[in-house]
Amino acid sequence: MQFTHDSALLAAFPHLAVATLTLDGVTDTADVERTSAPFLERAAERLAERPESELPEIAAWRRAFSQMGLKPTQYRCASEALLRRLRREGEIPAIHPLVDLCNAVSAAYAIPIAVFDLDQVVGDLTVTYAVGTETYRTFGGTTETPEPGEVIFRDDAGNAHARRWTNRQSALSAIRPDTRRVLIVSEALHDTAPADVQALRTELAGALGQYW
């Protein structure tokens, strides 16, 4: 499986920095709380200084969403949604050990992290502009069709594995108890994004290696 970004998208967002990881042998039995806690504490410390909307990582995604014609307060990138929940509720709900750990790292860095079950991806996966014929499966069990020109993660079968770029993933490739192979993608657009996504990748790889 090849993971790429469409050249037209890269031309529109030339400051995009991306880091990826693949992981085999995932299980749902690990207890990641000890490793996740320091990342969540870092996120909380940043939120104590300023709201998530003022963090440079989040501000850059808000500008990108505006550039895509989306209202940033209606459609938020995944890391902003996590930080908003952490600020309001004091915690991020547990979903799956792998997802929980990725969410904690995402909150610490304020950078979106997407995690895809590779066994649900057909062929290659490309971040690109939707044609308008793709299908997206919601977590409510319904099927949607992305708008033409919307940024999606599309596989060779026309499945949209995420809508509105870093806004929302699809239930089709969401991590589940029987997930074994995953692709992890972090993307950032702020000024120090190249260094930050690599630092994120290094820390995340080290954390993942403790369990899988």
Rank of each mutant, 00 (worst) to 15 (best):
P146T: 05
E33I: 11
R168A: 14
R201L: 07
A114G: 14
T192C: 10
L98H: 05
S53E: 15
A107W: 00
G149E: 06
A43H: 01
L70K: 12
H5E: 09
Q210V: 11
A195K: 11
S66N: 08
A207L: 11
R42V: 05
D24K: 12
P146D: 07
L23N: 04
Y211H: 15
R154D: 07
H5I: 14
L101V: 02
A160E: 05
N103A: 08
F153G: 01
L204N: 02
F139R: 13
E52S: 09
A199K: 11
A12S: 13
Y75D: 08
L204E: 03
Y136M: 04
C77K: 00
A195Q: 13
P93Q: 12
T29M: 10
W165H: 11
E147M: 10
N167D: 09
A162R: 09
T166H: 11
T35V: 14
S36V: 06
P14F: 11
N167L: 07
A110Y: 00
F139C: 06
F153M: 09
I92M: 07
W212T: 02
T35R: 12
G141F: 09
T138K: 07
P194E: 02
W212P: 01
D155W: 01
D178T: 12
L118P: 03
T202M: 11
Q169R: 13
T145P: 04
A30S: 13
T135R: 15
A199D: 14
L83C: 02
V185Y: 06
R154H: 07
E52D: 10
